[in-house]
Structure formats: C-alpha cells, structure tokens
C-alpha cells in the first residue's frame, strides 16, 4: 500500500514508511487518560473547596469543574470509570507487550543526573523519539505510580468502611485525604513540565497523535 499511496501524497507517505514510535493503543489510551485526568483534577479542585485542607489554598470556580459540590462530585465519580478502565488497559498492555520494560527501564541515577543537566543546557537529543532519555523514564514511571496512588487513595476515602483495610493502609481517613491531595499535586507538577516539553518539541506531540 505504501508504494501505491506514495504516488498520490508522497510527503505523507514518506512518513508512513517510518517505523511506528507509539502504537495505536498507546496513543488512544494516552489521550483518553489526558481527558479523564483533566476532568478528575478540575472536579477534584471544586470538591476540595468544600472543605479545604490548607487554609490559604482555594481553587476559584472558574478554573474548577462542576460549579458547586454536587456537580463536581457527579463529574468526579463519572470520570473515575474512564480513568480506571483506561488506566487498567494501558498498564496491562504496557506490562504484557514489554513496552514498560523496553521504554521505561532501566532508570539509573547517574543517567538521570546526566540527562537532567543536559536538558537544562538544552543539549538533549530528540533525534530518536522512540528512545526515552533517563529523565523522561523517571517522569513517566513516576506519573504512572502517582496514578496508582491517586486511584488507591481515592478508593480509600470513597469507601472507608467497605475498603477499611485500604484506608488503614493510607493511615486512616484524614491522612488518606492528604495522600490523595499530594498525588494530585505531583500529577499537576508533572503535567506542567510534560505539556511544556511537548510544545517545545512539537514532533513528539505529532508522534503521540499520528504515531510517528
């Protein structure tokens, strides 16, 4: 098909013969996850406002989702299904296909330090998008773990009786709320860096959309 299509739209088809950097399942689950995360974070901020953990921290309704507590809870407990089902698919495929092992491991501290310094100097190579540098590996593995923590701590504050052992694992109901909050903070911090880098290296964004 490549040869035939090349006659019509050569520019695109040069690319079509390039190897796939991100298979379709990665791209689909990535963007579903991005949508679910934005809904969860936006509605979570509105829920937070009903009983703030920190006196000086409050999220204005304009940047939150849901308008009032009940609306935010409806969004939160609807988007959680999207987040969890999609997350289970992504993590399962990531392990089964060996993608996590190939792309995210190993993570060696001296490589992270080296690539971090290189990144600050603007000297990181982006020629081969199919290989993640050590900082990327650390950030991606970290955010996947933060995703697990936010889901588990969320379940523990949603069902502190039916899932009381999980709640106890997180140090009880009140502590679990803080765990849930800090997991959100970690994900938001990741997102700030992640989105900035995707915009600085637009071809990485293209690869996450069309695969190459």
């Amino acid at each position: 098909m490549t040869a035939e299509a090349a006659n019509h739209v050569p520019a695109v088809c040069d690319r079509a013969s390039e190897p796939v950097i991100h298979p379709r399942w990665v791209r689909v689950t990535h963007w579903i996850n991005a949508l679910a995360m934005f809904v969860m974070i936006g509605s979570g901020w509105q829920i937070y406002d009903a009983s703030p953990l920190f006196q000086s921290l409050y999220f204005p309704s304009q940047i939150a989702l849901g308008g009032w507590l009940a609306g935010a809870l409806l969004w939160h407990f609807a988007a959680m299904w999207l987040l969890v089902v999609n997350g289970v698919v992504y993590v399962t495929l990531g392990i089964m296909t060996g993608r996590f092992r190939r792309k995210l491991l190993p993570i060696r501290p001296h490589e992270v330090a080296r690539d971090f310094v290189a990144a600050l100097r603007g000297r990181l190579s982006h020629d081969d998008l199919s290989v993640y540098n050590a900082v990327q590996r650390l950030l991606y593995l970290g955010v996947i773990l933060a995703g697990l923590v936010i889901v588990a701590s969320g379940l523990s504050i949603w069902k502190p009786t039916q899932l009381k052992y999980l709640t106890a694992f997180f140090g009880g109901y009140d502590t679990a709320r803080y765990v849930h909050f800090f997991a959100m903070s970690a994900i938001v911090a990741f997102l700030v860096i992640h989105i900035a880098l995707a915009l600085i290296v637009p071809k990485s964004l293209r690869a996450m959309i069309i695969g190459r």
């Binding site: 934005f38 936006g42 009983s51 309704s61 939150a64 989702l65 308008g67 609306g71 935010a72």
Partner: peptide, 22 residues
C-alpha cells in the same frame, strides 16, 4: 453556611471553564 446551596446550583455545569475548550 458552607453547605448552603448556591443560587447557581441548577446551573452547576456552567462552571465548566476548564472544559470550555473541549
């Protein structure tokens, strides 16, 4: 006072600014 329903409650989805772009 914190749990008083807001007058906007029937329109609770209006605050969906972060999804406005979508």
């Amino acid at each position: 006072a914190k749990s008083l329903p807001q007058p906007s409650r029937r329109l609770f989805l209006r605050g969906a600014a972060s999804l406005g772009a979508l």
